[in-house]
Design a protein around this nucleic acid. Structure first.
Length: 129
DNA sequence: TAGGCCATCTGGTCCT
DNA sequence: AGGACCAGATGGCCTA
C-alpha cells in the first residue's frame, strides 16, 4: 500500500513526466473520484453524523451506523411529534398498534438515563431498531 | 489473528 | 468526449 500511496500522492508529477494519454486520463479520473469521496461523500456523512445523538457523546459512528441510526432517529422524532412524548415516544406509539415491539435505540437511551446504568453503553447500539 | 472499517483504484453506465 | 456516479476489488489499520 505504501507504493500505492506514493503513487496517489504524486500522480500529478507522474502524469507530467510524459505518460500516455489513457494513463493520464485514468489518473485524472482517480483524482476526481478521490476528491468526490473525500469532499462530497465523507463530508455528507460527517454532517449527518453530527445530527445523531450518541452515547457517549464523543463516540464516532461508522458509516453504516450513521445510515442505520439516521433512519431510526427520524422515526423516533416522528413519533415524538405524533405522541407528544419526549421520553419514550416510540414505546407509546407502538402501544397503539404493534404490541411487543422492541424499544427503539433513542427511547432506550432515555430509559438508561433514568436508571443511571452507565456501564451498559455497549448494549446501546445492539438494539435492533 | 480474524473481522470490521476505511481509502483508493478501477471499469462500467449514465448524463450533459 | 468528458465528467459524475456507482459498485466491486484490494489492501492497510485497528481492536477484541
Amino acid at each position: 500500500m505504501d507504493n500505492l500511496n506514493q503513487y496517489s500522492q504524486g500522480w500529478e508529477q507522474f502524469v507530467q513526466r510524459g505518460t500516455s494519454a489513457p494513463v493520464k486520463q485514468r489518473c485524472q479520473a482517480n483524482a476526481r473520484e478521490r476528491d468526490r469521496t473525500q469532499n462530497s461523500v465523507n463530508m455528507a456523512f460527517n454532517a449527518l453524523r453530527l445530527l445523531i445523538p450518541t452515547e457517549p457523546p464523543d463516540r464516532k459512528l461508522s458509516k453504516i451506523e450513521v445510515l442505520r441510526l439516521a433512519g431510526s432517529y427520524i422515526t423516533h422524532l416522528d413519533n415524538q411529534l405524533y405522541t407528544g412524548d419526549m421520553e419514550q415516544p416510540c414505546l407509546k406509539h407502538n402501544d397503539f398498534d404493534h404490541k411487543n415491539t422492541p424499544l427503539c435505540t433513542f427511547c432506550w437511551s432515555s430509559v438508561k438515563k433514568e436508571k443511571s446504568t452507565a456501564t451498559r453503553t455497549h448494549e446501546y447500539y445492539q438494539v435492533p431498531y
